Amino acid sequence: MKDLNTTLKKIEIPQYKTYSGVVQDMELSYQLFGKKLHSAPIVVVNHALTGNSNVAGQEGWWASLIGDGKCIDTNKYTVLAFNIPGNGYDGFVVDNYKDFVAGDIARIFLQGLKELNIDRIYALIGGSLGGGIAWEMAALNPLLTEHLIPVAADWKSTDWLIANCQIQEQFLVNSRQPVHDARMHAMLCYRTPQSFKARFQRSTNEELQVFNVESWLTHHGKKLNERFQLSAYKLANQLLKTIDITREGEDAFINLQNSKTNIHI
């Protein structure tokens, strides 16, 4: 990628006040990919629950989508990705995770854009939790982006999602292997019973003497446990179940609906 500047940068946001009324200093980190900032249209990418700001390049978790000549072309755009404060990628930790809702992260991201002198972007894209935060950002500022692209994300947490997050919370608080066990459960939410049947067909791992679906779940639990902090998982789970652009009433929904934002679902 040309003009690539992937160094982790930080913005200090002192005395941020959460929706719950808690005041604390926040640290917001981000990375830039592609064209130099303010020299090209800006695409903001919000990462998912276990992701981070490293969205492109050799180790980028969305490298199949973002890069030279790819769907989000770094020869044409500046790509900006924030870290959700407390995701652990930059060393910043949030222990009081219950004090935050998804709207807080949206406001912090908007403050970050303001600090970078960005008042309008070409596109805002995010997957899962990142998509929910994108919904919240667009609802808070309907003039922010020309295109809003939430992937596998709704503008509110559904009862089904809240229920699954409650089960995740129980794993994260009570299990002897909290991240490992919570991830195993979470993997069940990403596939339908039909897809499990098509993929595994009750096959077994003869060496381990377990069903392949069991070894698959164990593998993903171990993999995430090796790279993801418990505090980050607790925070992300809390944010996931609190997505709601109508938190303060219907006006935000109506204003976004009536705006010129092109919403691609």
Rank of each mutant, 00 (worst) to 15 (best):
K2M: 09
N5R: 13
K9P: 00
K10R: 14
Q15S: 14
Y16D: 06
K17T: 15
K17C: 13
K17I: 14
S20D: 13
L28M: 12
S29Y: 12
Y30N: 09
F33H: 15
G34M: 13
K36E: 15
L37W: 01
V43A: 08
A48W: 10
N52S: 11
A56V: 01
G60D: 07
D68L: 02
K70W: 05
K70T: 03
D73Y: 04
N75K: 09
V79E: 12
V79S: 12
L80D: 05
A81G: 05
F82S: 07
N83L: 09
P85L: 10
P85C: 10
G86V: 11
G86R: 00
G88R: 03
F100Y: 15
A102D: 08
A106L: 13
A106V: 06
R107Y: 07
R107G: 06
G112E: 13
E115M: 08
D119F: 06
D119M: 05
R120N: 13
S128R: 02
A134S: 15
M137N: 05
H147C: 04
H147W: 09
I149K: 00
P150G: 00
W155R: 07
T158V: 02
A163S: 08
A163G: 06
N164P: 03
C165F: 01
I167H: 01
F171V: 00
L172A: 01
L172D: 08
N174C: 03
R176M: 10
Q177W: 06
D181I: 00
A182M: 09
A182W: 00
M184N: 08
A186P: 02
A186T: 07
M187C: 08
M187G: 04
T192Y: 06
T192A: 04
T192V: 03
Q194W: 10
S195R: 08
T204M: 14
Q209G: 14
Q209W: 08
F211R: 14
V213R: 06
E214M: 07
H219L: 14
L224D: 12
E226L: 11
L240H: 01
K241Y: 02
R247N: 04
D251K: 08
D251C: 02
I254M: 12
L256R: 05
Q257V: 05
N258V: 05
T261P: 02
